[in-house]
Amino acid sequence: MVTATQSLRPQAGAGAFWRRLVNGDEVARLVTLAFASTVLLIVAVLVFELFRGSAVARHRFGWAFFVTQNWDPVAEQFGALPFIYGTVVTSAVALLIAVPLSLGAAVFLAELAPQRISDACTFLIELLAAVPSVIYGLMAIFTLVPLLRDYVQPFLGKTLGFLPFFQGPSFGAGYLAAGLILAVMICPFIISISREALFGVPREQREAALALGATQWESTWQVVIPHARLGIIGSVFLALARALGETIAVTMVIGNDPSIRASLFAPGYTIAAVLANEFTEATGELYLDSLVELGLVLFLLTMVINALAQLLVVLTSRRGSAHP
């Protein structure tokens, strides 16, 4: 007499499947499922093509590809180290500048500014994130580079010239210029995500610290920021992935010189920039495959960092829901 029914499969069996197919629900599910699956297909094809396209270079150079610094298309010698070095250095400079600045701005917007001002500023900062990167490059090439060459770098050389990072002639274009423009470009990401993370800190946490006699800054620095740290670190990782993969703005100010220099004033090269400049000119299978292998490296690098960032964001939201 008892009929059992399950909500997940209200009507089981092949007959029921056909009935749902006819009334359209199954068709809708399958069609949208096919569209949703395209992202998996795209990533699969991307990985496959990057591996296949770089096969020749991978076989020829092996792991040495990553530790040799000779990039000579004429002699068919390809080592990726200058590009990896340039990518890491410019991103590091960008983070060093952007993280404190963005965190400060996020604290101001989340903790101090009245709601209306905070929202207005956040809107403007998010607009900054929408500015195309070629515009940043355009600005940098005509304002930032001359400024660095004529004023900032000579000044740094005079005052901090004892450090190896601030020695040598001023070119303007180079690691420092690329790092600075990257810093400006990733600020909006860190600010808007960190602000949300700070908003997520329960009011009682702040009040508890203030009630113990802490100043507002102490409560922010010792209680609020540690409480939001996972979200903040997540935003920094997301920004790092952006900085590593940023192409056009960097290409316009990096100086395009495949060599490794300690000085931040010197011109350099990044993975994305060499792809932008040389991909269409690459002649010969080995040259092209070496470039595709650089693309593979960039892909894997940003993939890992993004995956970490998302994990952190997921963890924060889990933790957030545990303390409503």
Partner: peptide
């Protein structure tokens, strides 16, 4: 993840 892939890599694809 796809959203985070550098646009130049999408260009290669």
């Amino acid at each position: 993840l796809l959203n985070g892939v550098p646009s130049i890599v999408i260009g290669i694809l």
